[in-house]
């Protein structure tokens, strides 16, 4: 069973606010870039986000996505996680 991407995106927004310490990120739009401009995750905040995603959704983004393209925008990350969450791989 997969999860709705919208629900995953909402959860990811809260995680973004937590790992960056920027509460305003809890309401960024879906098309916000995560690495360049936009949220501007650095390697520390990015790693914390990936660890939380793994803990909460059981999806190891770094292991499945060599170039971390999933981190392009909030929407691409939510879709990537939603597709894999709750499935046994």
């Amino acid at each position: 069973m997969t999860m709705p991407a919208g629900a995953v995106a909402d959860r990811l927004r809260l995680m973004l606010a937590e790992v960056t310490g920027r509460p305003e990120f809890a309401s960024v739009p879906d098309e916000t870039a995560l690495l360049h401009g936009g949220v501007g995750l650095d390697s520390l905040a990015g790693t914390l986000l990936l660890r939380r995603i793994q803990r909460e959704f059981g999806v190891d983004v770094a292991a499945e996505d060599m170039n971390l393209d999933a981190l392009e925008t909030l929407a691409t990350l939510a879709a990537f996680v939603a597709e894999r969450a709750g499935t046994v791989s």
Binding site: L35, D42, S43, L44, G46, A62, A63, M66, N67, L68
Partner: peptide, 22 residues
């Protein structure tokens, strides 16, 4: 090296525009 420990390294590489040639 692609492993679970150096994910921060890989994040920095991709942020700087480097990509893995499959």
């Amino acid at each position: 090296l692609v492993n679970a420990r150096n994910v921060p390294m890989r994040l920095a590489l991709t942020t700087a525009g480097l990509r893995a040639d499959q």
